[in-house]
């Protein structure tokens, strides 16, 4: 009888100790959640700032690219004018003029070569400016990933019953991008496309 009473008393002590331990653990978890609340909320609030910053990068590179495009357009326009003026010069001068003035002829020919080289370079600059479109797609992809992180953090906050009142007031842009867009020399890729389309056309004709 006595033994049984001692055993019950010991069990009760053990249960009390376990409950105290459990209470301590819960208290530690709550402290932990409180500690985590601020960084989680802070991280979530920083995502819209990061996306805004990235959008500004895209806007600024777009503006700069358009400016360069406008300038290249102006330069090639002037090159076109030079070509027209050279033609006019050839027209107004007597047909024998260049035959008798070989030095002037060489200078005029050299101007023509330079104008043509400028135009080719202008096209090369414009081709290279496509980087802006490709990088803006990459930035849009990065923004989309950040928005996913923001939503996950929101889910965590809701799950932990933390304050999620601070909603982002940034108006989200509808994004359409190729996540794999990259800027590289693609002559091989284009030849593969040509081959594919050629084969498809052939198949169609055979059918």
């Amino acid at each position: 009888m006595m033994d049984k009473s001692i055993r019950v008393e010991n069990s009760t002590k053990n249960i009390h100790a376990e409950l105290r331990h459990l209470a301590d653990s819960i208290s530690q978890i709550i402290k932990g959640i409180r500690v985590a609340q601020e960084p989680i909320a802070d991280s979530r609030n920083k995502v819209p700032q990061a996306t805004e910053q990235l959008e500004r990068v895209t806007q600024q590179t777009a503006m700069a690219t358009h400016r360069v495009l406008d300038m290249v357009e102006a330069i090639t326009g002037r090159d076109g004018e030079i070509e027209t003026q050279m033609k006019e010069l050839r027209r107004v001068l007597p047909s024998t003029y260049f035959r008798n003035n070989s030095r002037v002829k060489r200078i005029v020919e050299r101007i023509g070569v330079n104008v043509s080289a400028n135009q080719n370079d202008a096209y090369a600059i414009m081709d290279a400016l496509q980087f802006q479109d490709i990088t803006s797609q990459q930035v849009d992809h990065a923004i989309s990933l950040l928005e996913q992180v923001e939503n996950r953090l929101k889910d965590v906050m809701v799950g932990l019953q933390l304050d999620v009142s601070a909603e982002s007031d940034v108006k989200r842009k509808e994004r359409a991008y190729d996540p794999n867009a990259h800027f590289s020399s693609n002559s091989n890729e284009q030849s593969e496309v040509d081959k594919l389309l050629h084969n498809l056309t052939k198949e169609k004709q055979n059918n």
């Binding site: 490709i134 800027f183 284009q190 389309l197 498809l200």
Partner: peptide, 19 residues
């Protein structure tokens, strides 16, 4: 490319491309 051809595209150029 095949999807593009199926819906009726005549040709397909990959970006970035040369003008």
């Amino acid at each position: 490319k095949q999807k593009g051809e199926k819906v009726g595209a005549t040709s397909y150029l990959v970006k970035p491309f040369k003008s």
